[in-house]
C-alpha cells in the first residue's frame, strides 16, 4: 500500500492538488462564500483523476504486483491527505483571522463566518464529494467528466444550502456564526460532527470504490 501511495504522489497527483491547498487563504477575504474553498478542492481531485486517465495510470498500476482492490484505496487515501491538509489550513486560517481581526470584520455577509463551524461544513462537503465522486469514477474511469459534473453539482447545491441556513436557521445564524471565541463549544462540537461524517463517508466511498473497481474492465 505504501508503494502505491508513493506512486500516486510521484506520478499521478496534479499541481492543482497543491495549489488549491493555499486557497484556504480565501478565508481572510471579507464577505465571501467560504464553502467555495472546498469546491475548489474537488476541482483538483478531478484534475488528478483526469491526469491519471490521460497517462493510462490504472492500466499500468494493475500490471504491478498489487491487489486490484488496493488501487482505489491508495487513490482515495492520497486525496484524503490533501483534503485533511486543506481542513487543517482552513482551521489555522480561521484561528488567525479570529485572533487578529475585530469581531465586526469576522461577520460574513455572504455566508457563515470563517470559523470552526465553517470547517465542519467543509468537511461534510468533502465527505459527500468523496461518496459521490470516487465510487462512480472507479465504476467507469473513462467517463470522469460526467462523474465530476454530478458531484460538483451536488457540492454547489451544498454551498447554497449552507448559505441559506446561515440566514434562515438560528442555529447557523446565531450559535455557529461569528468568531470562534463566541459559542466555542458548539462550534467545536459541530466541527467534530463534520469531521466524523467526513471520515464515515470517505470510508464508505473506499468500500464502494473497491467493489466497483474489481468489476471494471480496463
Amino acid at each position: 500500500m505504501l508503494n502505491l501511495i508513493n506512486k500516486e504522489f510521484k506520478l499521478c497527483v496534479h499541481p492543482t492538488n497543491f495549489v488549491f491547498l493555499f486557497f484556504a487563504a480565501l478565508l481572510l477575504v471579507p464577505n465571501y462564500p467560504y464553502e467555495v474553498v472546498f469546491f475548489f478542492s474537488s476541482l483538483s481531485m478531478f484534475f488528478y483523476c483526469l491526469t491519471s486517465r490521460e497517462n493510462n495510470d490504472l492500466q499500468f498500476t494493475c500490471s504491478l504486483p498489487v491487489k486490484k482492490g488496493n488501487i482505489p484505496i491508495a487513490r482515495i487515501f492520497t486525496s484524503a491527505v490533501f483534503q485533511v491538509v486543506l481542513i487543517i489550513f482552513c482551521l489555522l486560517t480561521s484561528i488567525i483571522k479570529c485572533s487578529l481581526f475585530p469581531a465586526e470584520m469576522i461577520i460574513n455577509q455572504a455566508g457563515i463566518s470563517a470559523n470552526f463551524a465553517l470547517v465542519g461544513n467543509g468537511a461534510i462537503m468533502l465527505g459527500i464529494f468523496n461518496l459521490i465522486f470516487f465510487p462512480r469514477y472507479f465504476k467507469n474511469p473513462d467517463r470522469i467528466g460526467t462523474t465530476f459534473v454530478l458531484s460538483s453539482a451536488v457540492l454547489f447545491i451544498m454551498v447554497i444550502i449552507f448559505i441559506v441556513l446561515r440566514w434562515a436557521m438560528p442555529m447557523y445564524s446565531e450559535v455557529l456564526n461569528g468568531p470562534n471565541a463566541e459559542n466555542t463549544l458548539s462550534k467545536v462540537i459541530y466541527l467534530l460532527i463534520g469531521l466524523m461524517l467526513y471520515a464515515v463517508m470517505t470510508y464508505a466511498s473506499c468500500k464502494l470504490s473497491v467493489k466497483n473497481f474489481l468489476k471494471v474492465d480496463l
Binding site: K7, K10, N55, N56, D57, Q59, L64, P65, V66, K67
Partner: peptide, 29 residues
C-alpha cells in the same frame, strides 16, 4: 495476485504510460 504479478513482466504494445515523465522518474517508482 501480488506474488503472481511479480513473476510477470507486462509489455503492452510498447510503453503507453506517463508520456511526460522521464524514464528515471518512472523507474524510481
Amino acid at each position: 495476485e501480488e506474488a503472481v504479478k511479480k513473476e510477470i513482466g507486462y509489455v503492452g504494445g510498447g510503453f503507453r504510460f506517463y508520456p511526460l515523465k522521464t524514464l528515471s522518474a518512472i523507474k524510481s517508482v
